[in-house]
Amino acid sequence: MMLSDAESQREDQLRQWLRQDQERMQILAIVAALNLPQCYIGAGFVRNLVWDRLLGDSVTTPLNDVDVIYFDPTEETQETAWQIEAWLNQHHPHCVWQVRNQALMHTRHDDPPYQSTLDAIGYWVEQETAVAVRLENDTLAIISGFGLASLFAGHLTHNPRRPRAVFEARIAEKQWLTRWPMLQVISLRSETDLSFQ
Rank of each mutant, 00 (worst) to 15 (best):
Q175P: 00
F45C: 06
H109V: 13
A32M: 10
E126V: 05
W82L: 14
Q83R: 11
P113V: 14
V31K: 01
Q38P: 12
E76P: 06
R47M: 13
D57W: 07
A153P: 08
G44M: 10
S187E: 15
G147M: 08
L140A: 01
L151C: 03
Q20D: 12
A6W: 03
F196D: 00
S195Q: 11
Y70Q: 08
A130N: 03
L54V: 06
V46G: 00
I84K: 01
G154M: 06
H92L: 11
A132Q: 15
L104A: 10
A43S: 14
T80F: 05
V96C: 09
D65I: 03
W176I: 12
I186A: 01
F71I: 02
G122D: 07
L36E: 06
T139R: 15
A81N: 08
W51I: 03
L118V: 06
W87T: 14
V185E: 02
E79Q: 13
Q20P: 03
C39G: 05
L188W: 05
L88M: 12
L88P: 05
I186Y: 13
R162W: 01
S116N: 09
W82A: 10
T60V: 11
G147N: 04
Q127C: 15
Q175E: 14
Q26V: 02
Q197K: 13
W97F: 05
V133T: 00
N137F: 10
I143C: 03
Q16C: 02
T139F: 14
L177G: 02
F146N: 00
A81M: 06
L14Y: 13
E11C: 04
R164A: 04
A120G: 08
E168I: 04
D21H: 07
Y70F: 14
Y114T: 12
S144D: 06
E7Q: 11
I121D: 02
A165R: 06
S187L: 07
S150I: 01
R47C: 01
H92G: 03
F196Y: 15
L188T: 14
M182C: 13
P37H: 00
M105D: 08
R134C: 06
D72W: 03
N64I: 11
G44A: 12
M25Y: 14
S150N: 15
V96Q: 15
D57S: 12
A169Q: 11
L54C: 07
T139K: 10
W82C: 01
E126A: 03
Q175D: 12
R189C: 08
P73F: 07
D72C: 02
N89C: 08
E79G: 07
E168Q: 08
D72G: 10
E75P: 09
A43E: 14
V59S: 12
L36V: 07
E79C: 04
E76H: 15
Q90W: 01
Q16S: 09
T77G: 02
Q127S: 11
R53S: 03
F71L: 07
S150V: 08
D65L: 07
E75M: 04
A130Q: 08
A81Q: 05
T117H: 10
L177V: 01
P160Q: 05
A172N: 05
Q9W: 03
R15A: 05
T77A: 04
E75T: 13
T60C: 01
I143P: 09
D72P: 06
S195F: 15
A32G: 01
S8V: 03
R134W: 11
